[in-house]
Design a protein around this nucleic acid. Structure first.
Lengths: 200, 200
DNA sequence: GTCTATATTTGGATAGAC
DNA sequence: GTCTATCCAAATATAGAC
């Protein structure tokens, strides 16, 4: 009557090693750049030779894809922890701050998820679905705040990714654009709250 | 009494060929991606073999650097053609539209100038100075519009690059974010015009 | 599953003849 | 200035032994 599935110790170990490889990949990407990731380096970091990695991932792009999915899942996890207080402006501030800090705290992850700059890589359908889901959580939160104009959502993504992008590109490690978040949201809120969508 | 310098036909031809190589590099980067640029392809496009390119550029990065400088100069050229009408909002609209269209009309140029995503490349001091000069023209225009808070400049660069970035990443060739430009500038202007800078 | 060995490709850069 | 020939290095991926 125990409903637990039979544990497969072999599979468990396999999954653990996959996770270990991914963690190594993140670390190397953060130091060498996302495009500078090589299977040799990843393998070495986990104490293997390059060919052994192929027992866990079919290709280098499969690693990128798993990293992409991990990034999306982390975003979804953080989004699910956000609460709705009922104060629209506060909710907007908290949500946008979460998003922008998510972007800036790991520029490599930002590059992988939001800029499509890796030569031959594009996410698999499964991973892409996670990204769609992530955008949907943002849309839903904006609706709860009382803003349901689709143009407002597009404006918000532009404004927040713009802040994140400038922060990463022009003041890495600093806060020159981070400290503009509250003011940006004030500006955004004043313009879009209780506004009737214009025709086209 | 003719003040013209003596023309050096050899140098002139050399410069012409350099320009031809750069144009080929732009074309290839636009189809193969900026990171996908190879000397072989560039050489072939101008009817040479790869080693011959070294008679014109010391390295591949020297080509990137020349492209970077060209991009900045094109931006400066367009900025110099903008007029100030005295209508602050109209001037803001025109300036931001110029900037965003400059970005979106050539995503490869945008990537080279505004995202630093090429492995070992960073602009030479001379080329970087052009980029600084370009930002300065934006700052000066914003002052003429009547907004001289440095935070406003940072907010404007975030907003405009954000619109450009979303347009390029999520609706290439379309106008989903381009058509938000006027509304974005309305929002920006309402917030920053005649505002006293806050302490910190 | 992991290894060694190797195939394969690619691409930046140099040497030296013409 | 341009070429051929070549070097050198890197990196993905596969074959097959253990």
């Amino acid at each position: 009557m125990l409903g637990e599935p039979i544990r497969d110790r072999r599979t468990e170990r396999h999954e653990r090693t996959k996770a270990e490889i991914l963690e190594a990949a993140w670390q190397i990407a953060r130091t060498e750049g996302l495009a500078g990731l090589t299977l040799r380096d990843v393998a070495r970091k986990v104490g293997m030779r390059a060919p052994s990695v192929y027992s866990y991932f079919d290709s280098k792009n499969a690693i990128y894809d798993a990293m992409f999915a991990q990034g999306c899942q982390e975003f979804l996890r953080r989004g699910s922890r956000l609460v709705v207080t009922g104060d629209p402006q506060a909710d907007l501030r908290v949500g946008s701050r979460m998003f922008i800090e998510f972007c800036t705290e790991d520029p490599v992850r930002y590059q992988l998820l939001f800029q499509r700059t890796i030569p031959g890589f594009e996410p698999s359908t499964g991973s892409y679905a996670l990204a769609v889901q992530a955008l949907e959580t943002i849309r839903a939160r904006l609706v709860e705040i009382g803003i349901d104009d689709p143009a407002a959502l597009d404006m918000l993504t532009a404004l927040t990714t713009g802040l994140a992008d400038q922060q990463i590109s022009n003041d890495p490690g600093g806060d020159r654009w981070l400290k503009l978040i509250d003011e940006a949201m004030e500006m955004f809120f004043a313009h879009w709250h209780n506004r009737i969508p214009r025709r086209s």
